[in-house]
């Protein structure tokens, strides 16, 4: 865990869900569980611009720019088109801020881990690793 490896600010987190309310609620929960003090910037990009279920490259791009503080942006996505859209945007190279990447993690658990570690000042690699480790937490 290094301080400001790629930039000065904290790593930003973007949560991409097929549903606007799911993305917004998970963002709220993750920020809440990150506890008091300064938390890393989190933005939700859920559903389509007209409020329907789906994925919007426009909303994802706007969310990533909003949380970008120069230290990279960790993007977590829920299913199918959310994952594919982020992957296609990363491949495109100019729709997302430099240093934005898709993090392979379970959506809710990974979001909490990502926001907690980013708020503690971890760099993008450490945030991504913490979010991915959430796959290992078995529930029975």
């Amino acid at each position: 865990m290094t301080e400001g490896g790629q930039g000065s600010g904290p790593v930003g987190i973007v949560l991409v869900s097929h549903s606007g309310p799911v993305a917004a609620s998970v963002a709220e929960m993750a920020a809440g569980l990150a506890g008091g003090g300064a938390t890393a910037p989190v933005a939700a990009a859920g559903g389509t611009p007209d409020g329907g279920l789906g994925t919007s490259a426009e909303l994802i791009g706007a969310a990533a720019r909003k949380v970008d503080r120069g230290a990279g942006v960790a993007i977590l996505a829920d299913l199918g088109s959310a994952v594919l859209t982020v992957k296609a945007m990363v491949a495109e190279g100019d729709e997302l801020p430099a240093g934005a990447r898709l993090v392979d993690a379970p959506f809710v658990e990974g979001a909490v881990a990502a926001v907690v570690t980013a708020s503690a000042g971890a760099d993008l690699d450490a945030v991504a690793a913490a979010a991915g480790e959430a796959y290992g937490y078995r529930k029975e």
């Binding site: 789906g54 994925t55 919007s56 490259a57 199918g80 296609a88 945007m89």
Partner: peptide, 15 residues
């Protein structure tokens, strides 16, 4: 297509 489709076919056909 990537920007406007809203489903998995957007990134797939877009790509």
């Amino acid at each position: 297509l990537i920007s406007t489709v809203g489903g998995a076919s957007g990134p797939l056909y877009g790509t």
